[in-house]
């Protein structure tokens, strides 16, 4: 009898297996065929020299050694990317939070403002916008035309190495809308009676912001910061369009991903590019790990 029960249980488990794995079939194909398999293969490639034509040749750590010690262009890409990430993300979040704070105070016309501010963020990923940005900040572009109204003669912002990267930072800040929406949703989660209790306790609006709003919003700020930073590390299209694929002028907009793209698809150094990809994983991974570790000290969770 015990045997029969076990057998029946096995049969039940088999049905559950068949159902579960049946539904996951497409995902399994994608996961193994297009994600896990390729990821492992690229890890292997990162230890080889491979140009698509001849077979990959094992060269051990040579790619990584070169990245770490002998690749000036890599250092430049790192410099550009980090400057970009650590300028654009905090500014974008600060801007998004301030606007969200203003909008949250029961202002009339909230849906309209919210929509208008969101629009650039929605359109921003397209090539059209990158092109637009290039022309806005070109020597005779919109920005300089506006400056001219005030009698200032501008330069070609995207063609000047010192300023080109900052136009990209500005482009990122311009797309603050989605972060703002997330902040707005977070602000709405804060129960109104907490503010009522605080005003009865005599807390000024300023104190309410620092003692209630900000602490309760830290999980949302943290989340936004992580997502936006990871995304910023992966940015590609704007620098490609603005520099016409070169990362110029003088490699001043050479984003990490653009450098990786050049190595892979301009010079066909697939092994080296794979190593670059894994270095990017390590950068993003360690950044995320550190952030989560640090979050213990400033992110406030209810539970």
């Amino acid at each position: 009898m015990v045997g029969a029960a076990v057998q029946r249980q096995r049969a039940g488990r088999f049905v559950a297996m068949r159902e579960g794995y049946g539904f996951l079939l497409p995902w399994f194909a994608g996961f193994f065929g297009l994600t896990l398999g390729p990821a492992l293969f690229s890890l292997y490639l990162s230890f080889t020299k491979y140009d698509l034509v001849s077979d990959p040749r094992w060269i051990g750590m040579a790619n990584y050694v070169r990245i770490a010690t002998a690749d000036a262009k890599f250092s430049q890409a790192m410099h550009v990317t980090f400057t970009y990430v650590f300028l654009a993300v905090p500014l974008k979040l600060a801007f998004a939070l301030s606007i969200a704070m203003i909008l949250n105070k029961g202002l009339r016309g909230l849906p309209i403002y919210r929509a208008l501010f969101y629009l650039p963020s929605l359109l921003g990923g397209s090539v059209a916008i990158a092109i637009l940005w290039r022309e806005v900040f070109s020597a005779d572009g919109l920005f300089n035309q506006v400056l001219a109204v005030f009698g200032i003669k501008g330069i070609g912002w995207v063609t000047t190495p010192e300023t080109a990267l900052y136009t990209l930072v500005l482009l990122t800040i311009w797309q603050f809308g989605s972060s703002m929406i997330i902040f707005l949703a977070g602000l709405r989660q804060i129960p109104q009676d907490m503010y009522e209790a605080a005003s009865i306790d005599g807390a000024s609006p300023r104190r309410q912001f620092f003692k209630i709003t900000l602490p309760l919003l830290t999980p949302v700020i943290f989340f936004n910061a992580i997502v936006q930073t990871i995304d910023a590390f992966k940015a590609f299209t704007p620098s490609f369009i603005i520099s016409e694929g070169t990362g110029g002028p003088v490699n001043s907009t050479l984003f990490y991903t653009l450098y990786l793209f050049q190595e892979a698809f301009a010079y066909f150094r697939m092994g080296y590019a794979s190593a670059l990809a894994w270095v990017l994983v390590m950068i993003i991974g360690s950044f995320t790990a550190v952030s989560f570790f640090m979050s213990r000290y400033w992110v406030h969770y209810d539970e």
Partner: peptide, 25 residues
């Protein structure tokens, strides 16, 4: 079904994986 927690966490893991790693293969 058995293993669903494992697969689910692997799925979440792929969310974090930059596309560039799988790009070349």
């Amino acid at each position: 079904f058995p293993g669903r927690h494992l697969w689910f966490s692997l799925m979440l893991g792929t969310l974090m994986l930059p596309y560039h790693v799988v790009l070349i293969p």
